[in-house]
Computed example of a mutant assay.
Amino acid sequence: MAFGEQPAYLRVAGDLRQKIFDGVLPPHSRLPSQAKIRAQYGVSDTVALEARKILMAEGLVEGRSGSGTYVREMPEPARVLRAGNRVLGVGGPFRQEQADEQVKGSWESCSEQQEAAPAVAARLRIEPGGRVMCTRYVYRTDGEPAMLSTSWEPLTLTGRTPVMLPEEGPLAGQGVVERMAAIDVVVDNVLEEVAARPGRADEMAVLGGVAGHCVLVIARTFCASGLAVETADVVIPADRFHAVYHLPVR
């Protein structure tokens, strides 16, 4: 193969991808069968199969048992505001956006005490195995799952206080800043680290989609004078949402 020349399976995948982008293969239409790809492009079964695998891995098509492979409908990504003054506002950015009358948002959560895994302990700067309150959230927009979040708070800080359970008690749902202020802890810093990875099967089973499709993972940690008071992993389907950072200039 000459320098710069693509392997056959990439050329086939690229042509099919362009047809999807151009609307020649519109959403819900059936992708040509392996036999048709082989005949149309003059390639082997192996090349045709690999080209289809690439399109599936990219999230452009999906297989339907006993029916074939179809072009997925790709929605226009919505925006999730993650920064600026609102990130420290009441209830967090998602809850504020869902307060908009034009947006029908909801969420559900559950909390349990557990021992901190090494990675979580490192972010909270506590000993591995230290007791934490773990809270898992599913956020929905118009009834559809939009975002997952798992948060951990050290019980050495919140244990036996009115804010030990984030979604129960007098400050239920008020957000980390307000809850910590109630126990005289002033949050003054938040760190967010954004990464992308394939979505796990358990995550995509809730969010909708195929395991392996790309998700954004935002590792967020709230701090008070250098003390980590809460850390969380926020998981967002990358094909449906963009994380938007609006930073004030001081």
Rank of each mutant, 00 (worst) to 15 (best):
P118L: 04
R123F: 00
L124R: 01
L124Q: 04
I126P: 01
E127N: 13
E127V: 13
P128L: 02
G129F: 02
G130K: 02
T135F: 07
T135V: 09
T135H: 02
R136L: 08
R136A: 14
V138D: 05
V138F: 04
R140Y: 10
R140D: 05
T141I: 09
P145W: 05
P145R: 06
P145I: 02
P145F: 04
A146P: 01
M147V: 06
L148I: 11
S151L: 15
W152F: 14
P154R: 09
P154A: 03
T158E: 02
V163H: 00
V163C: 00
L165D: 15
E168Q: 13
E168H: 06
G169R: 03
L171P: 02
A172W: 04
A172P: 09
G175H: 08
V177Q: 10
R179C: 02
M180Y: 09
M180C: 03
I183M: 02
V186N: 15
D188G: 10
E192A: 07
E193F: 02
A195E: 10
A196D: 11
G199T: 07
E203T: 09
L207S: 02
G208Q: 03
G209K: 05
G209V: 04
A211C: 06
A211P: 03
H213Y: 10
C214G: 11
V217G: 02
I218D: 15
A219N: 10
R220Y: 03
C223L: 13
A224K: 03
S225E: 14
